[in-house]
Amino acid sequence: MSSTPIKFYQVGSFAIGNRLLPADDRSIQSDPSRTNALNSGHRACQGCGEALGARYALDAAMRATNEQIIAVNATGCLEVFSTPYPESSWRIPWLHSLFGNAPAVATGVAAALKAQGKSDIRVIAQGGDGATVDIGFGALSGMFERNDDVLYICYDNEAYMNTGVQRSGATPPAARTATTQAVGENPGNVFGQGKNLPRIAMAHEIPYVATATVADLRDLEAKVTKAMSFRGARYIHVLVPCPLGWGSQSCDTIKIARLATQSGLFPVFEAENGEVVASTPIRKRVDVEEYLKLQVRYSHLFAPTRRDDVINHLQSIADKNIARYNLLIDESESI
């Protein structure tokens, strides 16, 4: 993709496509011959952000590698909705082993390819936040530490969705889940210390770490493409709203992801070798409330009594992100 900023088009690089752009500058998803790594007929809920994120990411990876990829999938929604016997939605070689071992399985795939002299085939491991930040955390860290040639993609929907929306280590404070109910004095999830996997990944000083959301497709594609240009362990953390678990409208999936970024709650950035090298500035800043109020999992913050203390606490998390990742630079300056 060329690096010249697209200035003269009504939708710039924000929309998926742009009939006015040269073919090379168009997003992969705008191409009718895109590969649809995850094809129709899968059983994800209506408006599932994970299904969307996975197709975006893997199509980009296919494009970047001339379709020479193998994917390993942890147990979770993505796995279940894509491969219930007798039908698979994948069109790439794909392996599901267990909930907590995708990074290690991917290491094995990469090792086998290397031993067979087929390192042109690249390996992707993917899983939900539960698989990534909790049960597969050790395996992931091991994969990072060895710098195995694997791109790990976490589809973060902030809970164990496949088992019915239980809390995970990535569930945000105050969110209600099936195991952090909206009852008691402090309804919803506790304000813990958080478990910021992108930063943990950075601490391994692996070549490439990035965050992305389904709200910015071009950014996600560019990051996957860039990730594929590195060898070694790489990590991309994609925020994927889940209508079922978050209690949001199925049509609002992308909007909610967008609000997560525009409020600062989900910072979008890139890091190389442990250092942040770029962040996506906020274009239209909103208060966290704009984001929270679209989701039933936060509805206890607004009724029966409004919990300004909690909302402010969440706002302070967003503000901290904004400061930490420098999210309020004027966009025109950053070009």
Partner: peptide, 28 residues
């Protein structure tokens, strides 16, 4: 030669690496 020796972080990972490798056609 032509063999990758992977020092993993647990037995769970050892068997998992083996699974991935074997599924990719390597003698494991």
């Amino acid at each position: 030669r032509n063999c990758e020796f992977i020092n993993v972080e647990s037995e769970f990972a050892a068997m998992s690496v083996a699974i991935g490798a074997s599924a990719t056609g390597a003698r494991t």
